[in-house]
């Protein structure tokens, strides 16, 4: 389990990084936290000739909180975002989801933006990107462009990123003050890829036991081939927060297409995703 030979590039500025990516094109791969890439290299499942290591590029490791979004740079570690109190205060679903991303050792190296660029639908953060209507900041030889999260993911491990482009940052949009969130997942072992997972954003009107749900959206982990959002508003709108969430199961099960693997059947994952959704809705509003 040793990787095939590759050239390691270590640019120090964003310009250098972009230039290097342009030069190596399809023969290159961006190395950030390496938590997905390095195992794949070691097993020789991928054998890129060039690795463009962005860890020394200045300015990519910052978290910015504004009135509208939380902006996360390309080399911000999961752990840094997870324990960022300002980000948590304005967008709690980030920490709620990050608590489920693998284990501390992996969160200390792995990057949130890298996991989104990797576009594994079993990853938590791609689903949070779509749930929050995040904006992807992409940089390449032709300059910068922005892509909405909903347009970013094209298929399993596939995004609209060109081979010579870098995902420079992700802007997670903040919810309004009446929105409450929760994230739940079920994995065979704590920290494993989930059998199913869900993040919910519930819009609630009123306070206490009189509160009424105005709408809700849910984004999924491991039960679709690309991260999707299911709008639950039609079945939850007008319900009290003590609701049993009738109708949610059917809507969720119709909106996902889990695949079977050695850990769970498709049917089980479908039921699990629906049940987690109901529990997450309850968790968010209670």
């Amino acid at each position: 389990m040793k990787p095939a030979p590759f050239v390691h590039h270590s640019p120090h500025t964003l310009d250098e990084a972009v230039e290097t990516l342009r030069e190596v094109g399809h023969d290159g791969k961006v190395l950030a936290g390496g938590q997905s890439l390095i195992p794949v290299l070691n097993m020789r499942l991928a054998q890129p000739a060039h690795l463009v290591d962005i860890n020394r590029v200045a300015g990519l490791d910052t978290i910015t909180v504004t009135d509208h979004f939380v902006r996360v740079g390309a080399t911000v570690r999961h752990a840094a975002l997870q324990r960022h109190d300002d980000a948590y205060a304005v967008l709690p679903v980030l920490r709620q989801a990050l608590n489920n991303v693998a284990h501390p050792a992996i969160r200390n190296r792995g990057t949130t933006v890298g996991s989104i660029a990797h576009a594994d639908a079993a990853g938590e953060m791609p689903s949070i990107a779509v749930l929050t209507n995040a904006v992807m900041e992409v940089i390449g030889p032709k300059g910068r462009r922005e892509v909405a999260a909903g347009d970013f993911f094209e298929g399993p491990l596939q995004t609209v990123l060109e081979a010579d482009e870098l995902l420079e940052a992700v802007r997670f949009a903040r919810f309004g003050p009446s929105t409450r969130t929760a994230f739940l997942e079920s994995a065979r072992r704590h920290g494993d890829y989930a059998l199913a997972g869900v993040g919910v954003a519930v819009d609630v009107e009123g306070e206490g036991s009189d509160a009424v749900v105005r709408g809700a959206r849910a984004a999924y982990v491991s039960v679709t081939d690309i991260p999707v959002v299911i709008d639950l508003t039609e079945v939850v709108a007008g319900q009290r927060i003590s609701s049993s969430w009738d109708g949610v199961d059917e809507l969720v099960q119709a909106g996902i297409a889990p695949e079977a693997d050695i850990h769970a059947s498709s049917d089980y994952r479908r039921v699990l995703a629906a049940e987690l959704t109901r529990r997450a809705l309850t968790g968010a509003v209670s």
């Binding site: 195992p39 284990h103 065979r188 072992r189 704590h190 920290g191 494993d192 050695i262 850990h263």
Partner: peptide, 16 residues
């Protein structure tokens, strides 16, 4: 063998 790695062969962690 479809699960020849520690990602898919599930040895319990301390949490299990």
């Amino acid at each position: 063998l479809l699960n020849a790695s520690f990602m898919d062969f599930l040895i319990p962690y301390a949490s299990e």
